[in-house]
Write a protein that binds this DNA or RNA. Sequence first.
DNA 1: AATACAACTTAGAACCGCGCAA
DNA 2: TTGCGCGGTTCTAAGTTGTATT
Length: 561
Amino acid sequence: FDQWEEERYTDGSKWKFLEHKGPVFAPPYEPLPSNVKFYYDGKHMKLSPQAEEVATFFAKMLDHEYTTKEVFRNNFFKDWKKEMTPEEKSKITNLSKCDFTEMSEYFKAQTEARKQMSKEEKQVSKENERIVQEYGFCVMDNHKERIANFRIEPPGLFRGRGDHPKMGMLKRRIRPEDVIINCSKDSKHPKPPPGTKWKEVRHDNKVTWLVSWTENIQGSIKYIMLNPSSRIKGEKDWQKYETARRLKKCVDQIRAQYRDDWKSKEMRIRQRAVALYFIDKLALRAGNEKEEGETADTVGCCSLRVEHIKLYPELNGQEFVVEFDFLGKDSIRYYNTIPVEKRVFKNLQLFLENKQPEDDLFDRLNTSILNKHLQELMDGLTAKVFRTYNASITLQQQLKELTSEDNTPAKILSYNRANRAVAILCNHQRAPPKTFEKSMQNLQSKIDAKKDQLADARRELKSAKADAKVRKDEKTKKAVETKKKAVQRIEEQLMKLEVQATDREENKQIALGTSKLNYLDPRITVAWCKKWNVTIEKIYNKTQREKFAWAIDMADKDFEF
DNA sequence: AATACAACTTAGAACCGCGCAA
DNA sequence: TTGCGCGGTTCTAAGTTGTATT
């Protein structure tokens, strides 16, 4: 970050100059051709443009299981009716009598056609390229920077994760009148589309966003911000890891302190200490309270309820076991049985006394109290720093443990396994790919074929050796050498395939990307690559190298987290 | 102290396009 | 030539945290 004059930002401002072209709006709705029909109760019905547009949102999702869910259908139907004309509203009274299949088929055909054309129709991608060039960049403090999401989210039906009470609601179209522009006073202001106005143009250099608007589902604000490769994001990322490294220096003390607090006379302190133990040991998220009925019912540490844990004085030969079973962020299930220290166990029993399943486990604690306490323990310390710290330290330690002087694929397997240990700690899951079983079988048959090939090559080598023993001439000697090399090559190929199979199998339900991108100090990876002579391209793809440019620049092979 | 709001990071799924094998 | 599997990219929801307001 040498190229930026840091002292300019010590007054709390994020930039001195910001110029951009504003957002790209969703293309306007084009009514369907008249041969694409909508049927109600078996009868053709011509919809008004507004009602038709909303209907197409549903039609486009017809293959998705969302559209079979009661909540989704009810929310959709309610919002759809709001867009109907009075006549439409009086006629269309039952969603189940609506037939969207022609619309759905039409859109499927359209995507198919687009796929076919795309080769000749370079125009489309050229036009897209032009938009990226014009709107995808901005100038911040004399540097041209990439914008992450310069397109305004198009209208559609809200798809919440998990059991979301608002799924299917209409996400309305955003117009220039909804949009706030943020840029420098002395910059060329972005122009609203002809005949429209921005909601507001402001010049706030204490924030990093370029454009914002309020979304109608939760009433929250959405932002257009810079790409992770930008200075403003990179510097923040660096800071995040520096804070985690400071935690490393005092974590022993903090652990000693919360262990001590398990014995406190005050219930609130005991709760705080047990919660912190979970956050530290299990890498749980803080767990803010959420408004009921507004979002899916998910929890984190501070919002755990009695129903989410079970205590076993003894389980499978282990003492003081806690079973966690709850839905966390994105409604991803967290399931874990873990032996804890006796004091923690006794405290948990105490917290559970006289409570109903739906009561809070930590009734004297919330994220605000916890973070205030953490702030006192270390400047900049919050609950999420523990996740960053534990993730990064785990990677470093696992890499140390797993890597050996070996061939490159084996080293990469070691890296992936270290990465995987972190992903498991942070509970980063994914739905097993739909094609998983099949692709696994394919790989297995490749391995089998390779094994046959290897057996053949070995047989040939053997006979060549026998031949050479008898003839003892140059030609046969050479043949032995070639066969030897062939065997070696095939062995290597087989190894590579087997490593790949192991890696993939272990990765079935685990997502490595999230931890790689958000929790692992990239300098650990850079140092590891240098130390073991693995090119950085083997671990980070182009985007990741851009995001972590600062680390690639900074870390040498001796970097210690 | 509780609540609301704002800004920012973290998250998995959908989507896209490229290279490879059939 | 085509179809498909995969890695990479895009999308936007869902968190955390800090601060202002009541």
